[in-house]
Design a protein around this nucleic acid. Sequence first.
DNA 1: CATGACTATATTGCAATGCAAGATAGTTGC
DNA 2: GCAACTATCTTGCATTGCAATATAGTCATG
Lengths: 107, 107
Amino acid sequence: MIPSQMLKGILEGCILKIISSKEIYGYEISQQLQKYGFSDISEGTIYPLLLRLEKNNLITAKYRESALGPKRKYFSVTPGGEKELEAFVNNWQELNHAVNQLFHVGE
Amino acid sequence: MIPSQMLKGILEGCILKIISSKEIYGYEISQQLQKYGFSDISEGTIYPLLLRLEKNNLITAKYRESALGPKRKYFSVTPGGEKELEAFVNNWQELNHAVNQLFHVGE
DNA sequence: CATGACTATATTGCAATGCAAGATAGTTGC
DNA sequence: GCAACTATCTTGCATTGCAATATAGTCATG
């Protein structure tokens, strides 16, 4: 299981990416993350993160009724969020390059 | 530049890797990190981290004289540190797989 | 209709860790 | 003496993932 410290700064970008692919709500995001191999991202992680993204104007939200449960809060990425997502991709690649450089020397 | 949040949980593994390659001291580690593409890892980051690794028995240290400056503190990885390093590699690969899976879908 | 399971969101407070800022100290050369 | 470089350490802060807990709607089972 991926340690929580290693997710810092990564989760945000991943969630932005998921939201950018389609309008989606928190509960479904957590299921998608699981699907991609992020095991057990709890609600205590995901909802505060979504609120923070919303507060920083990287995503916007609207409530919609659900057939089987309370209202869902659907998120979309704003233009600012798209820029943030681009920046994340660049930073992630930079990190990847540095770590792989370090670990693949002498093999 | 790689954001500091993204280094959390990564730097430790990278520094263990560098120490495992040879006996080395803090100041030189920071230079190596720079070489691998980790820009500007400051002393306020590296020395507390090394002290923590030492305290957790993942590395050991001995002081040696230097020709041009104060004593250097040389570090080596302990067996426990080797295990930690292995675990890091596994976790890093797991993270990599998850993120790449997410970002390469639909391309 | 009561209970449990599942869906769905939110809040509080904690723990871990990278980092800026500042202190200390040795060596070398101007 | 002073600046520049080498070398280590400490304090306190900011960020962020997470456990725990609360709330509430729907649905099936008995």
